[in-house]
Simulated scan of single mutants.
Amino acid sequence: MYERRLIATLDTSPLLPALREILTHPARLDEFISDVGVPQGCLVGNTTAELVPQDTEATEIVARSYSRFTDIVTAALERAQATGEVTDKARPEAQAHMLLYLVQGLSLVSRTGIDRTAALAAIDTAVDGLRA
């Protein structure tokens, strides 16, 4: 389900606003909190922090999830590079990995509370760095 939503979100033009929307999700966790009141981060990020590498099955699941994310984002970035929306000064794969590290880092940091202003500034800096 997440992959379908990710693909649908990234299958838009222009791409950069769609990428920003994906990246801001962890930074906006306070908008999605249940009555419990504490953001819990994302399942894959939490699994990474808590089970990887000591649990082989969890490690394989997480690795596949991260690989699918980067594959999907790479394809979208390739399309955006071809249209001139995204800079071609870096390989799309490297750009996708940078975005993976950013979104997962935000997800992990959100578990302790998050400075939304700083998080959104970091996201905007990353998105601006992709601009052609």
Rank of each mutant, 00 (worst) to 15 (best):
119 A>K: 03
37 G>L: 07
15 L>V: 11
94 A>N: 11
100 L>C: 02
75 A>W: 05
13 S>M: 14
86 V>Y: 01
116 R>F: 09
39 P>V: 03
115 D>W: 15
39 P>G: 10
79 R>P: 05
24 T>S: 14
75 A>C: 09
15 L>N: 06
118 A>K: 13
119 A>D: 01
46 N>P: 01
108 L>H: 04
19 L>C: 04
57 E>K: 15
67 S>C: 04
38 V>D: 02
62 V>Y: 02
41 G>V: 13
76 A>E: 09
99 L>W: 01
62 V>F: 07
67 S>H: 04
41 G>S: 14
45 G>D: 05
44 V>W: 03
42 C>N: 12
74 T>S: 09
111 R>M: 14
86 V>F: 03
36 V>Y: 09
32 F>K: 06
37 G>E: 04
19 L>S: 00
42 C>R: 07
105 G>D: 06
48 T>Q: 11
90 A>R: 13
35 D>A: 10
87 T>L: 07
11 D>V: 06
85 E>W: 02
12 T>H: 13
27 A>E: 06
79 R>H: 02
61 I>C: 10
106 L>D: 00
25 H>T: 06
108 L>C: 02
103 V>L: 02
78 E>C: 08
28 R>M: 12
13 S>V: 11
13 S>D: 12
51 L>Y: 05
116 R>G: 11
37 G>D: 04
30 D>Y: 04
90 A>D: 11
29 L>F: 12
110 S>W: 08
14 P>V: 10
82 A>P: 02
61 I>T: 01
34 S>M: 13
67 S>F: 00
74 T>F: 10
76 A>P: 11
48 T>F: 13
108 L>E: 03
19 L>T: 01
69 F>V: 05
96 A>W: 00
92 P>D: 00
95 Q>Y: 03
45 G>R: 03
50 E>G: 04
110 S>M: 12
107 S>G: 09
44 V>A: 11
61 I>R: 08
22 I>Q: 12
26 P>V: 04
49 A>P: 06
67 S>V: 00
112 T>I: 02
38 V>M: 09
93 E>G: 12
63 A>T: 10
